[in-house]
């Protein structure tokens, strides 16, 4: 079998096999996601799914990567990739059953796929500097609250370490500029957007 006959799906199977049965335990440990997320709204899709990794000591940060979509019936179709970082400075232990992470600042970048969205601007169409922002890339700042529950209080043999629910407030740079330029007229809450989600930690 020549390389060109390998279909993308086979590739994924080969990579996953190498992953799971390979002898490079360090790489295996490093690459396997430590959490998965499903989120509603929050400017990265009607529904989005992410996989993520822990950062820093005591899991004080997470880095997630994912994809979300908006169906035509909800104002799409839109396909959106995202990268999210969240810093979790406070971790309050709730007896035996969970943890509360009350205030988690973060940022995320969304990338809209499709012909209407571009990282820069077409030089043939626009003079230099005609527009200055990117239509495809949207940087956002966020603040979330998360409640992590240990599933083993119900399921004794669960491999899951935590199941969590969270709410995330965010805004993007274009909304933020709109607020700064009009702050006398414009309540800050105008530019805040909300997402809610659930995260499974392994």
């Amino acid at each position: 079998m020549s390389l060109s006959t390998i279909r993308p799906k086979s590739f994924i199977v080969i990579i996953l096999t190498t992953f799971c049965y390979g002898n490079n335990l360090l790489a295996q440990k490093f690459l396997i996601p430590k959490n998965v997320t499903i989120q509603y709204a929050g400017s990265i899709g009607f529904i989005s799914g992410d996989f993520g990794y822990n950062l820093f000591k005591k899991e004080r940060g997470t880095m997630d990567f994912g994809y979300g979509f908006v169906p035509a019936s909800k104002g799409g179709p839109l396909n959106i990739l995202n990268v999210k970082f969240s810093y979790k400075p406070f971790n309050i232990k709730l007896k035996e059953w969970g943890n509360l992470l009350p205030v988690n600042p973060g940022f995320f970048i969304s990338y809209h796929l499709g012909s209407n969205y571009h990282i820069g601007w077409n030089d043939d169409q626009y003079p230099k500097g005609y527009y200055w922002w990117s239509t495809a890339l949207r940087p956002n700042i966020s603040l979330s609250s998360e409640l992590k529950i240990k599933p083993n209080i119900i399921f004794t043999k669960s491999r899951m370490r935590y199941i969590s629910i969270y709410t995330e407030v965010s805004t993007n740079e274009l909304y933020f500029i709109s607020f700064v330029q009009n702050h006398d007229e414009f309540p800050f809450t105008n530019i805040l957007k909300l997402g809610i989600g659930t995260k499974l930690y392994f």
Binding site: A41, G76, L78, P102, T135, K193, L194
Partner: peptide
């Protein structure tokens, strides 16, 4: 914080699917 943010935002189109909808 959680309740307050939900309360403040639930009334005003806060659940945004994308700025490009």
């Amino acid at each position: 914080f959680l309740l307050l943010s939900l309360f403040l935002l639930s009334g005003c189109d806060a659940f945004e699917y994308s700025p490009n909808v």
